[in-house]
């Protein structure tokens, strides 16, 4: 049973709307001013409230790791993130309170002006591809065929690790590569640096996972 206050509000509004509608459908009152106002709430105000709060809850739900992991091809990635013993980049970020249960979204979201919209559109594309191509793909095959669409951008890492911090620059590998990290010609998540981010993304970009 959900306990989030916003979910409870959304449910409350839906129940209130349903009660008004059931009253109208079962009692069949005449179309007086009172009925019109009651229906304005039952068909308009209360359902719009449900939709508004439901949208917010829904968008928040899309950030959760469990949401990403609900498609079977993502299960190994999701399980690895939740594995307390895993030392992958994704798992270590998942153990950080700043990311936690939203670590997939935190690292794979766009952070530009239209970042959220671009991220959601990308998510719709994922669902389209899953439904049309990968729904019945065995997990072993999916690990070999599914890979990230574009190289992972360093700017996503730099959203938190700005490369300006003296402690960051005190690491000699960082200091020697700082310009290449900033222009993206060396990936933070490359093997030998901090990658691979997932245990199944060991092949170079374009080759497979």
């Amino acid at each position: 049973m959900p306990t989030d206050p916003l979910i409870m509000l959304s449910l409350g509004l839906a129940v209130a709307a349903a009660l008004v509608l059931l009253w109208f459908l079962l009692w069949r009152p005449k179309l007086t001013r009172v009925t019109k106002v009651a229906l304005l709430f039952g068909i308009g105000v209360l359902p719009i409230g449900t939709a508004t709060t439901g949208n917010y809850v829904g968008f928040e739900a899309t950030k959760a790791r469990s949401f990403c992991g609900s498609c079977h091809v993502m299960t190994p990635y999701s399980n690895d993130s939740g594995d307390l013993k895993s030392t992958t980049l994704a798992a270590r970020h998942a153990r950080n309170a700043m990311f936690g249960e939203e670590n997939c979204y935190a690292c794979h979201a766009d952070y530009g002006m239209f970042g959220t919209i671009k991220t959601k559109l990308g998510g719709l594309r994922h669902i389209y591809l899953y439904v049309t191509e990968y729904r019945n793909t065995p997990l072993e095959e999916a690990r070999e065929t599914i890979h990230i669409r574009k190289p992972f951008k360093n700017s996503t890492c730099m959203h938190c690790h700005s490369t300006q911090n003296p402690d960051w620059n005190a690491v000699k590998e960082h200091a020697s590569l700082v310009e290449r990290v900033r222009d993206g010609s060396v990936s933070c998540a490359s093997e030998g640096c901090h990658g691979p981010a997932h245990p199944f993304s060991k092949r170079p970009f374009g080759g497979a996972p």
């Binding site: 959900p2 979910i7 959304s10 449910l11 839906a14 709307a17 349903a18 509608l21 059931l22 109208f24 459908l25 229906l39 039952g42 068909i43 359902p47 449900t50 939709a51 439901g54 809850v57 829904g58 739900a61 959760a64 949401f67 609900s70 498609c71 669902i127 899953y130």
Partner: peptide
């Protein structure tokens, strides 16, 4: 018909609250 449609719409919206999957 409008009332019945609203009830169906509410049902679909509530379903996503209980099962927040794609």
């Amino acid at each position: 018909a409008s009332a019945i449609l609203t009830l169906i719409a509410l049902g679909l919206m509530v379903w996503s609250l209980f099962q927040p999957t794609p």
